[in-house]
Design a protein around this nucleic acid. Structure first.
Length: 271
DNA sequence: AGAGGTACCTGGCAGC
DNA sequence: TGCTGCCAGGTACCTC
């Protein structure tokens, strides 16, 4: 589910509700996420005050004076702030109970998400240290993608999904940005020109910014910190639209299997 | 080093 | 109305 716009929407939603609040306890109904939620996390997070809510790629970082909780929403995860007394639904695996009677509730049917604890700088954590640049940060450019892609034979769609190339891009936004840049998803990354990468970098930024304005994409179950869906699915040009007319030229959108995942493109607008 | 496949897990949907 | 098989927003880890 959640790519950068959804994770950032979640971050913005929960930030005012949890910053400065103290965690009084954790309720772990099912510790079996991608990695087990450990007793050490429960012990060390409890009693700590959340100083900030950060994000790196698709990871959320709840920072305290003693350490940082690293949270990933996987494919189907969502976080919301609800009264701690509210009955838990199926798949509400963890509550981070706050000192004002609310809790931060992690819901994740597929359990591909994780909740980890580190005492050190989270950016040095194994899961974060090799992440590529943030696509909305100043150090990201078409030149960076051009240099990084030389000699690479992979499909550009897969190159964009590689978190060591770029952090936070998933299958929806990779496909949408490639449409906006006029590039077919199967094109070899190493055979795309500097000019085309400049256009692609701009398309990535524009697509992510438009998705953020819409509060993210809700295909099935994404919800922001207040339980509300996003609306960017109404603006998708190609993702999930196989067989439907291109909104620019009317040609039928094609779906193609690249590796294990579907890619979508307009055969006329993209080359 | 890079590329490709597998695994983790649940739920929704199409087709029979 | 079942049942089966396939698909899904992610990504670490393994092999070649």
């Amino acid at each position: 589910m959640p790519e950068l716009p959804e994770v950032e929407t979640t971050r913005r939603g929960i930030e005012p509700c949890v910053t400065g609040r103290t965690v009084i306890r954790l309720v772990v109904r099912n510790p079996a996420l991608r990695w087990r939620v450990t007793p050490k996390l429960v012990r060390e997070f409890s009693g700590r005050t959340i100083r900030s809510v950060g994000r790196r790629g698709k990871y959320l970082l709840l920072a305290t004076d003693a350490g940082t909780a690293i949270l990933h929403l996987g494919m189907s995860g969502s976080l919301r702030v609800v009264p701690a007394t509210q009955a838990a639904d199926a798949h509400d695996h963890v509550d981070i109970v706050l000192d004002n009677g609310d809790c931060l509730r992690l819901h994740d049917p597929r359990r591909f998400g994780c909740l980890l604890w580190t005492r050190d700088d989270p950016r040095k954590h194994k899961l974060l240290r090799d992440l590529g640049p943030e696509p909305l940060a100043a150090d990201f450019s078409g030149d960076y993608l051009f240099e990084k892609s030389r000699g690479r034979k992979r499909a550009i769609r897969d190159f964009l999904l590689d978190s060591q190339v770029l952090a936070g891009i998933g299958n929806i936004y990779a496909n949408e940005a490639l449409f906006a840049a006029g590039l077919r998803p199967a094109r070899a990354a190493g055979r795309i020109s500097r000019d085309q990468y400049a256009r692609l970098a701009g398309a990535i930024r524009a697509t992510l910014n438009r998705a953020l304005k819409a509060g993210g994409t809700t295909l099935r179950d994404f919800r922001n910190g207040r339980g509300e869906p996003g609306y960017f699915q109404l603006s998708l040009n190609v993702y999930g639209r196989a067989g439907e007319p291109c909104l620019v030229c009317g040609t039928a959108i094609k779906a193609k299997r690249l590796g294990q995942r579907s890619a979508f493109f307009c055969p006329k607008c993209q080359s």
